[in-house]
Simulated scan of single mutants.
Amino acid sequence: MANSKYEYVKREFEFHRHLPASNWIVVRIDGCHFHRFSELHAFEKPNDDRALRLMNACATSMLEKFPDIVIAYGVSDEYSFVFQEKTELYQRDERLIISSCSSCFTSFYMMKWKEYFPSKELVQPPHFQVEVSCYPEPRIVCDYLSRRQSECHNRNQYTTCFWMLVKSGEGENKAKEILKDTLPKDKNELLFQRFQMNYNNEPAMFRKGSCAYRQKVEASEDERWDVAVAHVDMGPHFWAKHSYVFDRR
C-alpha cells in the first residue's frame, strides 16, 4: 500500500480503548467550572428551576438520539447515562463514545438555551467533562444510581441551608462554620427554626434529582416508547416497577 510506511503512526502511537463486552456502560457528563458559568449567567441559588429543566431537556434529547441509552439520572450540572450491556456504539471505543456524548450534550444545551432562558443571552458555551465506567450487572448499576441520588440529597440539603444563611445576612465563611459537622437532622432543624422552612416541602426535582427513561405509551392502535422525566426515589419500589429498562433490546 502507498501509505504502508506511515502505518506505524497509528499502530504505535494512537491509543484506542475498547470497553469490555457484556458490561453496562455509564457515561457521566459533569459541568466543568460550572460555578463560574452559573455566576456569569446569574443562576438562582441554591437551585435554578430553569437550568435544571434545561438539563432534563438535554437528557431527553440524548435518549432520543442514542437508542441504546436505557436510563439516565441527573442532578445540578451533571447527568449519568446508562447504555445497555450489548451496545456496539462506535464498537465500544471509549474515546469515540466520550467525544460523541460530550459534543451532543453540549450542542443540545446551546440549542435549547433560549427555550428556558428567553431573556438571557448565552455569554459563553458550557464546558462538560466526561468519564466512563462499566458495570457487569444491573444490580450494580442500580446501586450506582442510588449513590448518585444519595449525594444529590446531601448536597442539596447543604446548599439549601448555606444559601438561606447567606441570604439572611450571614457571610459565606460564617455560613460554612455554622454548617460544619452538622448532621442531616441538624440541617432540617436549622431550616425550620431559623426560616420556618420544611425541607421535605422543597420541590422533588431539587431534593431527588431527575430520572429520564422510556415508558410505553398506547395511542389508539399504536404503541410507542416515549421518554419520561420523573423526580422520585430510586429505591426497590422504583426498580420493581421499572425493571424492564434493563430487559429492552
Rank of each mutant, 00 (worst) to 15 (best):
M197W: 14
R248E: 10
M55A: 06
F162A: 00
I69M: 06
K167R: 13
K187L: 06
E94N: 03
S107D: 00
I178P: 06
S22W: 07
Y90D: 05
A230I: 08
N188S: 14
A2E: 03
Y79A: 02
G235D: 01
L183M: 12
G31H: 00
P20M: 03
L165I: 03
Q196D: 13
C32T: 11
G235K: 01
R28D: 00
N56T: 05
F246L: 05
E177K: 14
F66A: 02
P138M: 00
E7N: 09
W239Q: 09
S61T: 13
R214Q: 08
N173W: 14
S243E: 07
F37H: 06
F81M: 00
F238V: 06
N3C: 13
V70S: 15
P118F: 01
R50Y: 02
R248T: 01
Q91W: 01
E78A: 02
F108L: 07
E64Q: 12
Q157V: 14
A59E: 05
L190E: 00
Y199C: 03
C161W: 02
R155P: 01
L96W: 08
K45C: 01
Y158K: 07
Q124C: 14
D68F: 04
P67E: 07
Y135P: 02
S133L: 13
R224G: 11
N3A: 13
I140M: 05
I25M: 01
M164K: 13
F128G: 08
V9I: 14
T87L: 05
E121F: 12
D186R: 01
R214A: 04
P20L: 00
H127G: 13
A2C: 12
P203Q: 08
K120N: 10
C142V: 05
V123H: 15
D30W: 06
D68A: 08
E131D: 15
W113P: 12
E12K: 13
R148C: 00
V130C: 09
R155L: 10
R155D: 11
F66K: 07
L165W: 03
S168H: 09
R11T: 10
G209L: 06
N56Q: 10
A219R: 12
Y6N: 02
D143H: 11
Y116P: 04
L145R: 05
Y199W: 03
P184I: 13
R147V: 13
N200A: 11
R155Y: 10
Q84D: 15
R92K: 08
V227Y: 04
K180C: 12
H153P: 12
A228K: 12
D233R: 04
